[in-house]
């Protein structure tokens, strides 16, 4: 049990993929224009990571070392495609909003990194939790960054929630300022870099204390 606690701590804080390992920067920077985007891609990534870790771990002893990387990629790619199909089929608006970034989860280094550095060396249960918590750790950063950028850029939070919950959820969107000019930079790509830099700085600052 304490083992899983340690894994969770690693995923959420000590070895957080978003602000410590700095892996998976492509989606981190590209989709975090709003809380909903960040959160949903984060969750999709977390699911892929948990499943890929859980499926690599039991067969780790049967994979020849020479071809382990292609095999890992193969497994991850298959899982991602399945998820891509499912989102496309059942949550179409979200599929449109996240676009190319769902298939791109395959190339997200953090997935392969966890498979290679954890699942290939550990038992199935811890591997599953490692993937899950690492993924959720990333999701947390994506959500936080999304919130930051959305708040500064548009003055709202949870905009686009109707993509997931349907049009009736539109009144869940929080508007902070009635007449907000919009600070476009936060929404545009440079804002993602600055925002992530601020998050990393914040984490290091807390750590340093």
């Amino acid at each position: 049990m304490s083992d899983i606690k340690g894994i969770a701590l690693d995923g959420f804080w000590k070895q957080n993929p978003g602000v410590v390992q700095l892996l998976g920067l492509c989606p981190t920077l590209a989709v975090t224009t709003s809380v909903i985007n960040g959160l949903s891609l984060g969750i999709a990534t977390a699911i892929v990571m948990a499943l890929s870790n859980a499926s690599v771990s039991p067969i780790r002893k049967f994979i020849p070392t020479e071809i382990r990387v292609p095999v890992f990629i193969l497994i991850i790619a298959a899982l991602v495609t399945v998820i891509d199909f499912s989102i496309h089929a059942f949550i179409q608006p979200l599929y449109k909003a996240l676009g190319i970034f769902i298939p791109l989860i395959v190339t997200n280094c953090i997935v392969l990194a966890r498979v290679e550095s954890f699942a290939a060396k550990n038992k199935t249960t811890p591997s599953f939790f490692d993937g899950l918590f690492m993924g959720l750790g990333l999701a947390m950063v994506l959500t936080f960054l999304g919130a930051l950028r959305e708040l500064f850029g548009k003055g709202t939070l949870l905009s686009g929630i109707d993509l997931i919950l349907g049009p009736s959820a539109n009144n869940l969107v929080i508007h902070f300022f009635s007449d907000y000019q919009g600070f476009l930079l936060a929404i545009l790509p440079p804002g993602a870099f600055i925002g992530l830099a601020c998050l990393i700085a914040l984490k290091n600052r807390i750590e340093a204390r």
Partner: peptide
Amino acid sequence: AILLISFP
């Protein structure tokens, strides 16, 4: 540049 991008 930040101003120009943000408040064109």
